[in-house]
């Protein structure tokens, strides 16, 4: 009797048996990102030295064994040159007002294009900043926030709000984590915002899903949901994926170079940045958008950029916004 048949005879769905067992499961512990980075760098140095030494030893093939051992030992030492992972974990992509960075005991104003090193703390005051993460994705920091980039894939949010957009970076090695005093959030192909103050944590998910892990439990926050953690209490409620709550993050949207891109790419970018679904009045318009290649670029926020692009592409093209829809029409 096949295993499947036997389980059916027993009235047990194999998938349900699996799910029943995993009711007892909890998320596995993740090593602290800062520790992981530190150990990676040290082990990398060890490996780099060893592998370089082996490479060179192979080239010395004709030498006597004793000489090769000596050479390897020497090269092992020489090979300890810093070729370790870069310290910078982000750079400044958007800057509004004055934002400071605290690193190495010094506080300095950030400039557009500046690198932000691992371990640096960003304090926004009345300013705002959009960061391009080296590990992929965009991290936007609202006014009155304080956030430390503890690793390539992790930020500690002490106060204020941040917005993370993974930009569908499927190649990410690990999820991006936002650590707060109330729990840790990890993305799975997501756009989400986190707000922290002294008493509570709020996380709102615009796209994808976020895992919120606290001491011993974990909960998922899905698209269009907001979860508030206040002490031991967790409140879950619906959340609009568009509108005023997200406006500050939209203003910090990363630059999008339209030169050589198809019109549909720009439209999809605007829809993603404003939390809306792109729709066309008819199939012909959609085909036109797929076939039209743009020339040149102008750096604007999403909606002003849409107006500019439509105007230069075809003056008869128009857009309208109806709640969660971005509709493209033609006069």
């Amino acid at each position: 009797m096949s295993e499947r048949r036997r389980s059916q005879d027993q009235g047990t769905d194999p998938e349900n048996v699996f799910r029943d067992l995993f009711v007892h499961a909890a998320p596995r512990v993740h090593p602290p990102a800062a520790d992981a980075e530190e150990i990676r760098r040290v082990v990398y140095g060890e490996w780099d030295a060893l592998a370089r030494g082996r490479k060179r030893v192979r080239r010395l093939g004709a030498l006597a064994a004793a000489a090769a051992v000596v050479a390897a030992a020497v090269l092992l030492t020489v090979g300890r040159q810093p070729n370790a992972p870069v310290e910078a974990v982000a750079h400044v992509e958007r800057l509004v007002g004055t934002v400071h960075v605290i690193a190495g005991g010094r506080t300095l104003p950030l400039q557009a294009g500046d690198d932000v090193a691992r371990g640096a703390t960003v304090t926004t005051g009345s300013g705002q900043v959009g960061l391009r993460l080296i590990s992929g994705g965009s991290l936007r920091v609202a006014a009155q926030a304080r956030v430390t980039l503890t690793a390539a894939n992790e930020a500690e949010l002490d106060a204020g709000a941040v917005y993370f957009d993974s930009e569908h970076a499927a190649a990410r090695r690990e999820p991006f984590a936002v650590v707060t005093a109330f729990g840790t959030l990890r993305d799975v192909g997501t756009q989400f915002a986190v707000i922290v103050d002294t008493a509570r944590l709020e996380v709102g998910v615009r796209e994808g899903r976020v895992a919120l892990t606290r001491r011993t439990d974990s909960t998922a926050v899905a698209t269009g949901e907001k979860v508030t953690v206040n002490g031991a209490a967790i409140r879950r409620e619906p959340l609009s994926t568009f509108g005023a709550d997200w406006a500050w993050a939209e203003r910090l949207a990363p630059p999008f170079d339209t030169d050589g891109r198809r019109l549909i790419e720009v439209l999809e970018w605007v829809a993603a940045q404003t939390g809306r679904t792109l729709e066309f009045a008819d199939a012909t318009l959609e085909r036109t958008a797929r076939e039209t290649v743009l020339s040149g670029s102008i750096d604007l926020e999403p909606l002003p950029k849409l107006v500019a692009v439509l105007a230069v592409t075809d003056p008869d093209l128009e857009y309208s916004i109806e709640r969660d829809r971005l509709l493209i029409t033609k006069n």
Partner: peptide, 14 residues
């Protein structure tokens, strides 16, 4: 089975 992601989400993540 722990986080409850869909197959589509897992595909995207991988």
């Amino acid at each position: 089975y722990v986080y409850g992601f869909s197959v589509e989400e897992i595909a995207a993540n991988l």
